[in-house]
Simulated scan of single mutants.
Amino acid sequence: MIDLNADLGEGFGRWQLTDDDALLTSVTSANIACGFHAGDPVIMRRVCEHAAAAGVRIGAQVSYRDLAGFGRRSMDVPPADLAAEVAYQIGALEIFARAAGAAVGYVKPHGALYNRCVRDPGQAAAVVEGVRLAGTPLPVLGLPGSELHAAAAASGLPAINEAFADRGYRPDGTLVPRSEPGALLDDAERVVARCLAIARGEEVSAVDGEPLRLPARSLCLHGDTPGAAGLARRIRAELDGAGITVRAFA
């Protein structure tokens, strides 16, 4: 059994980066941008409505306040401020999720915040505090063994292991930075093969060729990857064809 998630709602005003409706036909969980790295009230409302209609679980993709940098620039935000900003983003999305007859089911940091929370216990604890401040003990989606998961476990929040279909990995199980070679996988055959291997609990290859096992309850496909919607359809079909149940974890 595996969950398939993707980043949705990554647009602003008339600008749209992700093909939300097409991705919603394949994924089981939607990481919806909450306005800090992308997204706006109109987009958030629309994607929540469409996700609810499709039976796709809604997740809050929280970020540093960085529209200009798409949330991919690391920032030194005071923990109390970050906790408040995380709670603010969750609360904003919850309004639109409830209006659509659904609810926010989990939280996932985006971009630089996601990567910072792998190794920074202070920022990780602030994200978890923000989840708790929002009022519901939501599951937190992140890398296995991360500081984010340690903070979530310490606070009694469910920590859900995630693996990436289209990102390169270092031998230690962390992601290759986007500024380095091998950060993105653009070979569809390789991406599909990796997804099947992860779902079956088999080893995959790190960027240096070393074998790596990625324990995961959820697989992420980036919505802004070229051809993401078509790739998501293929991944879903391959998982279904292999007898692997694709179901939301939340």
Rank of each mutant, 00 (worst) to 15 (best):
D19K: 05
R45F: 04
C48H: 03
A33M: 13
H50A: 00
L17K: 13
C34R: 07
V42A: 15
T28P: 03
R14A: 15
T28F: 03
A30H: 01
V47R: 03
R45E: 03
A38Y: 05
M44C: 12
L23M: 13
V42F: 13
R57H: 14
T18E: 10
N31S: 09
V27Q: 09
P41A: 14
D20R: 10
A51I: 05
R45K: 15
N31Q: 11
V27Y: 07
S26G: 12
G13A: 11
N31A: 04
R14P: 05
E49A: 12
A38W: 01
E10I: 07
M44T: 04
S29F: 04
C48D: 01
G59W: 01
A38D: 07
H50N: 08
L8W: 00
G35N: 04
R46L: 02
G55V: 12
V27P: 09
Q16E: 09
G13S: 09
C34I: 02
C48P: 01
W15A: 14
A60K: 02
G35M: 09
E10D: 13
F12H: 12
E49W: 01
A33P: 08
Q16P: 03
D40T: 06
V47C: 07
G35T: 09
H37M: 07
V42C: 07
G13P: 11
R14Y: 09
A22V: 05
M44W: 08
M44R: 12
R45H: 09
I43Y: 03
V47H: 05
S29P: 04
A54K: 05
D21A: 15
G9W: 00
A38Q: 05
A60G: 03
N31I: 05
I58Q: 09
V56Q: 02
R57E: 14
I32F: 00
D20V: 11
L8N: 01
D21Q: 14
G11L: 06
V27R: 00
T25P: 04
G55T: 10
F36A: 15
D21N: 12
L24G: 05
D21T: 06
A51H: 01
H37R: 13
G39Y: 02
A60T: 08
L8K: 01
A60H: 06
L23N: 04
L8T: 00
G9N: 03
N31T: 10
A54N: 06
A33R: 06
E49L: 10
I43G: 00
V56C: 03
A22S: 11
A22Q: 10
A33V: 10
C34Y: 02
R57N: 12
L24R: 01
G35K: 10
H50Q: 15
G35L: 05
L17T: 14
T28M: 10
S29A: 14
D40N: 11
P41S: 07
I32A: 00
V47T: 08
R46H: 13
D40L: 07
D40W: 08
D20N: 09
A38G: 13
Q16G: 01
N31Y: 08
G59F: 00
V47G: 03
R46K: 15
A54F: 10
C48A: 13
E10P: 10
E49K: 03
F36L: 12
T18R: 06
T25R: 15
A30E: 08
H50R: 15
D40V: 11
H37T: 09
C48W: 01
A30N: 01
P41M: 12
